[in-house]
Design a protein around this nucleic acid. Structure first.
Lengths: 254, 254
DNA sequence: TCAAATATTCATTGTCTGATGAAATATTTT
DNA sequence: AAAATATTTCATCAGACAATGAATATTTGA
């Protein structure tokens, strides 16, 4: 039984450079004072291009040539700065992680201080999610791409779990600490699983596949982060409370 | 500023066939009565191998050579049966979708009939999730791989949303119909967003990255589907109720 | 019994891939 | 102003890639 007629459209057609790139001058370009604190913009352009490509097609779906082309730079320069393709990926992943981790921890700290003993699950969840949603709602395509990238890595078997762990576990443990204060009787297992569900919901939201737009026939927009945040906080908080407050029923059998 | 010393370990080392494959005989092998209802096992072996590889490394992270090798078959045979790499992927994705979709719809139907007007959110969610968790808990590595594959596609931008939609929208709409009966006053937008959160949580759970094992220091096992199901149903049901029952508070501001 | 259909490998194609050493140009340090 | 260092492109490599046409073997069915 042979395969059907060949109408399998490819996953992605690599539409190659239509406009032949103008020949560029060799050697170091003039007027770039490479200070320690001010990295040359080629490097940043490479990171931006890689971020966009990796987030859209994953590690294996991208070639360094495509990244180089989008950054308007020779492929050798990518190797000069980042050594290997993997090195480039790691650099992209780490770049914004620092910033986001700091913002999240600061946000949880601030909430804990302001709430005192009146700490609530919803408040904690809100303080954890807010920095991300603020960045996303601001519309910067860089952050946009970055979140989509994280979402993909989070769902990548084999090496995704390890990468996520190394980068984000510190913040997650901070979140769980805060939640334990709001849910003093919570069982540890329930707490971890609840976080897992939160992580999944967040991840899919940030991955921006346009699935919900299509499913809801345009009623919900995957880019409407205000609408998302307003719904995600109570949805998730309610799940935590149900699962982690033993008095009110808890999980079903077993 | 040059790249650091080259200690970027690769994402995946393609450990190539150490044991030189014994030369295999050309032509149709003896004793295979290719009936219409009983496909030859080479074809199934290819699908199994592709399922395992695609689920672990994604579409671009897999070469047809690797699939062929794992299926103990020449690469030309993959093209014979599935024409292109994309054709192979689509075949893998479609194979189990039929089965799962039927099981899910039957499960929802059965629950609706048995519950009558006493229909609950938790009951509906349970009936929707149960078929998947049963398959997963049964331990068949084929289903295991398949779920991980779906999880990855669900978080894949560009073409993931479309693929998911074409394959699963019918069932999702059946689920939402049932939920509307349990939540008669629900706002449509809230309903769709709630499903989105459910989908994300489910997806990450099925993708089996081992992230939760690591995060919880071994306390939670990503393969323990009984524990997952027992927690996921109340967690998600509670979120739906909180968000889609306007009387009891609903979503926060805005 | 023999031709058609089916299932399989072999051998090869042209293209793309990540990577590298060398050369060119600029800036900084001595 | 020479030497050292930084940034960039060029030219090229060996290996991997998806795909295909032809060869070979078996089963089916007229």
């Amino acid at each position: 039984m042979k395969a059907k007629a060949k109408k399998n459209k490819p996953v992605r057609t690599k539409a190659r450079a239509v406009v032949a790139a103008q020949p560029r001058r060799r050697g170091r370009p003039p007027g770039r004072p490479a200070r320690d604190d001010m990295t040359p913009d080629s490097r940043e352009r490479i990171l931006d291009a890689a971020e966009a490509q990796f987030s859209a097609h994953g590690f294996w779906g991208v070639t360094i040539r495509e990244v180089a082309e989008q950054a308007r730079v020779d492929t050798a320069l990518l190797h000069y700065y980042f050594d290997t393709k993997r090195g480039l990926f790691d650099a992209v992943f780490a770049r914004r992680a620092e910033i986001m981790n700091k913002e999240r921890i600061d946000s949880i700290d601030a909430y804990e201080r302001s709430a005192g003993s009146a700490i609530t699950v919803e408040g904690v969840i809100n303080s954890f999610l807010e920095p991300m949603h603020l960045r996303a709602a601001q519309g910067d395509p860089g952050w946009h791409n970055y979140f989509a990238l994280v979402a993909q890595v989070n769902n990548t078997p084999v090496w995704g779990g390890e990468t996520m762990g190394k980068t984000f576990d510190r913040v997650i443990h901070r979140l769980l600490d805060a939640l334990r204060k709001a849910l003093p009787e919570a069982d540890e297992k329930d707490l971890y699983w609840s976080y897992h569900f939160l992580s999944g919901a967040l991840t899919l939201t940030l991955s921006q596949t346009g699935r919900i737009d299509r499913l809801s026939n345009g009623l919900c927009k995957s880019g409407d982060f205000t609408a998302i945040h307003a719904r995600m906080v109570p949805f998730i908080a309610s799940g935590f409370e149900r699962l982690c407050r033993p008095r009110s029923g808890g999980r079903s059998r077993k």
